[in-house]
Write a protein that binds this DNA or RNA. Structure first.
Lengths: 199, 199
DNA sequence: AGGATTGTTTGCGAGTTGGTACAAAAATCA
DNA sequence: TGATTTTTGTACCAACTCGCAAACAATCCT
């Protein structure tokens, strides 16, 4: 009872040779490019550097790992919106900053622009899998709510409708990024949306 | 040279026991619910009623069949927009009719609301497959162009920007439908979009 | 009728899939 | 030190994957 947690409560057996967050990030990237059904265990071993048994011990089976990547994505995206709201910029600047971050992220990817794992990948598996569908629904609600909250705080009288449309534009940006649309096209759509809401 | 095409140019051997269009439609539905990677040959045999060799003889391998379903979808959607433009209704009514048709379609599906095969399914496979990506890009361009054309014909001075945003809302409707959003939610988003453009 | 041509059915085989058993390895505890 | 606990690496398995070969069936042509 003396050294309750000397460092980080030293565990008993052999220590893990990997960081859970990093592994989850690597798995997310692979799932984002190939989708759930299109990603094999060999893919995940290749992406994470872990062997199958390590993956299974740490996360459970393939589906549980996928769900974990979705949860991680929802959390991180939520924190992003929180920061944006806290920055307390005027409507136009808030939306511009939001779209800038989103477009930048959507244009990244292992083999090409990969958009959003929730909007453009989990959606494929959502119809026949209730847990994936629930995560996607939670993500969409989070987006709608946070953007509406942001617009309400700035005194937008049509906050609700504007938030829904802004979210819709986010979704479209993901689809268009995966279709190979050039950055300028994505930025133009974002600018059109900002003009429509804040212009 | 006399009976060039007595009926429909009677072919040589054993006649096909199926209608190509119907089979393509059945395959489309299965691909729409499960995605490309998530649909097996057994699934397609089950959905179409054809045996593997018949599928292969008529369409080629699984990927070629998938590409055929995408092409069919693009064609049919294009015809839908053509009809809408030809109807020559005012802006508000045109958009309302468009969204009504789209929402109705997106809420259908083999096992639940399945949205759009292009937006919410082909997008998953588009990153690593150039031909699928090209089809998706062509589909998006078709949507953008047709809606812009419609708005230009009605004298909308911001036709281009409005068309992009309307297309974005269409994409979001597909994602939301697959997430299990109720009809009222989809209709509300559509109404918000119409109000923003034509209000 | 009989040959030619095309479509259909059965069955299979090579490769890949997700998942696991088992032993070696690396740490803590006594 | 040796026993215990946890992680890691190797190898494997049963099930499923896509695709195809070969025999059979149905039509047209002469």
């Amino acid at each position: 009872m003396v050294q309750k947690s000397d460092q980080i409560a030293r565990r008993r057996g052999r220590p893990r040779g990997f960081d859970t967050g990093e592994v989850l990030g690597a798995a997310t990237e692979r799932f984002r490019t190939r989708g759930y059904a299109g990603t094999s265990l060999d893919d995940l071993v290749d992406a994470t550097g872990l062997q199958r048994p390590s993956l299974y011990a740490a996360f459970g089976d393939k589906r549980a790992l996928y769900l974990a990547t979705l949860d991680r994505t929802i959390e991180r995206a939520g924190r992003g919106f929180d920061q944006l709201i806290a920055a307390d910029l005027p409507i136009r600047q808030s939306l511009q900053a939001m779209f800038r971050t989103i477009v930048d992220g959507y244009l990244t990817g292992e083999t090409g622009p990969s958009g959003c794992i929730m909007v453009s990948t989990s959606a494929t598996s959502a119809v026949d899998d209730a847990e994936i569908r629930a995560r996607l629904a939670a993500f969409l609600k989070m987006e709608d709510d946070r953007i509406e909250e942001l617009l309400v705080a700035r005194g937008d009288p049509a906050a609700r409708a504007h938030a829904r449309v802004a979210t819709a534009v986010i979704h479209s940006l993901s689809v268009r990024a995966r279709a190979g649309a050039p950055r300028a096209e994505l930025e133009a759509l974002a600018a059109d949306c900002v003009a429509l809401i804040a212009g």
